[in-house]
Design a protein around this nucleic acid. Structure first.
Lengths: 285, 285
DNA sequence: GAATAACCTGTAACTAAATTACAGTTTGCG
DNA sequence: CGCAAACTGTAATTTAGTTACAGGTTATTC
């Protein structure tokens, strides 16, 4: 784990002054690596030894060593970590935090996603007679988005966010059909039922859901993301973005598998929108 | 250019002793970053000032600064950049590329979003009598998602992805109502009409769209993201993710503005889902 | 509710590390 | 061969970081 993440995960074990130090570092990581211990202490309004103790708590040998680690964290791709939004955050702070934690979530998703399963899912999708996307609540909009993408491929696609329709659709499914069930928790009862019904009717069920969940158990193939969700806000945020990116990946895999001629089709679909749009150049009139 | 590369390219301009230092560093870069100038000088069999001079020759402020740069070079990180998917990419490659370019897009969005406008949008939203989210095509699912979020706030929210319904809804809008129009290009004619109609009926219109677009001209407030879109695939990808994150930000700003009591409500909404879900622990039975 | 213990935090002394100044040495060129 | 320029090391100096200790705070127990 990199130092920045470590700071974030262990904020709770910090003392008052140590937290001040943590805040300053998280706010200006780039400045920190070019500051002396005295400068940093002043910024955080604590004494120098406190900064030193802070460094040791993070399993570094001292301040210089800490800076080294910090420098590596910053160099190592993103300085983005999952920072929670606080009560007293202003617009600037919460905007930055949400962007950053979303990016951090994507980063972990990227590391955890199983490429083999992605590849198999693409296999299955390219050979599907019909593709159905099902999601409920927040995942409904992901399903909706997936439909929008796969629809362009000129494949029969359906998408329902209504349990009754989903159920009917699942019952009507047959061999060669692919059902994609989307649920962050994987514990939505109705969706588990749908997955089970689809399987009974010989459809291939792909789950975009938590690995070790009831829904996962009902699926032929499980695409798990396991991103940390910010629970403070009681709203699904990062998970949903990660799901969307996964949809993008599946769609991309799909088009690549179909070859370059196929991509001409996509261009046609896009061009077909032109009539409904203002021209790019002279919309000012 | 990173320091390691710099050392390699400029070996020729080094003096005899400096080259000794370069050799030692290139041979054990990891050791170097954890050594003192004295240790390194001994390893290279030169004096300490020589090492120091070596560091300065590489445009660093001194030995400690040099170690920082070296540490960053060593951190095996690929910064996130917008890498296009290629024809011959395997699953591993395109998965990584899509994750990375999405993250890169979020990073630019983060830098370009105007905090003041965000804040004003939050202002407007918190005071809204009714909030409407309108989007077409790919942006429809973003609107859908926004509805899912704002619905939890116990505010009247509607969301339509149907032009006729949007039109009717816009005509019925009144002062105090807020209409959020979502469109990446901002050139979808129908949506521009909707925005105009809503404005004529005294609603406040927030546009999540390109800055200098026809739609933007019809809006009271424009939230622009300007992310680079991967046009190769002929599908909206990054733009949509950025829009979603922006929705997250607005929703977060909304809840923060409403205070902590309000957040209890959100918890209630979330808890209300419990009945429809399998228990977290014992779903195995 | 008071006493004690554990723990945080800062001041000041100390140590280590890096830098500068300077002087000796080498190298290159006329 | 001699002079100048550049390189390198020694020693002094400065700077930065660490340790030791003491005062103060908070938690805990009787």
């Amino acid at each position: 784990m990199n130092v920045l993440e470590k700071i974030v995960t262990s904020v709770n074990s910090f003392s008052k002054s140590e937290r001040k130090v943590a805040d300053v570092i998280l706010a200006n990581p780039q400045t920190t690596i070019h500051s002396s211990i005295a400068a940093l202490a002043k910024m955080a309004d604590v004494s120098e030894p406190t900064v030193n103790r802070f460094c040791r708590r993070l399993d570094t040998k001292g301040f210089p060593d800490f800076k080294l680690h910090l420098a590596q964290s910053l160099a190592n791709g993103t300085p983005y970590v999952n920072r929670h939004v606080e009560e007293e955050d202003g617009p600037e702070a919460y905007t930055a935090k949400i962007f950053e934690s979303t990016m951090a979530a994507l980063d972990t998703a990227r590391q955890r996603v199983d490429i083999n399963t992605v590849n198999r899912a693409v296999d299955v999708l390219t050979q599907a007679k019909k593709i159905s996307f099902f999601g409920l609540g927040a995942s409904a909009s992901v399903a909706h988005d997936a439909q929008n993408k796969f629809f362009r491929f000129n494949v029969p696609v359906v998408c329902f966010d209504d349990i009754v329709m989903q159920r009917m659709s699942a019952i009507n499914s047959a061999e060669g059909d692919v059902v994609v069930c989307i649920s962050h928790t994987g514990r939505t009862k109705n969706l588990c039922d749908i997955a089970a019904i689809a399987r009974e009717n010989d459809a291939t069920v792909i789950g975009i859901t938590a690995y070790d969940s009831p829904l996962a158990k009902e699926c032929t193939l499980v695409l798990s993301l396991d991103v940390p969700e910010d629970t403070d806000m009681y709203m699904p945020m990062a998970s949903r973005v990660a799901q969307l990116v996964l949809i993008d990946i599946l769609a991309t895999g799909f088009t690549l598998r179909r070859g370059s001629k196929f991509r001409e089709n996509l261009k046609k679909v896009k061009d077909s929108l032109r009539g409904s749009r203002f021209d790019k150049k002279d919309f000012n009139n």
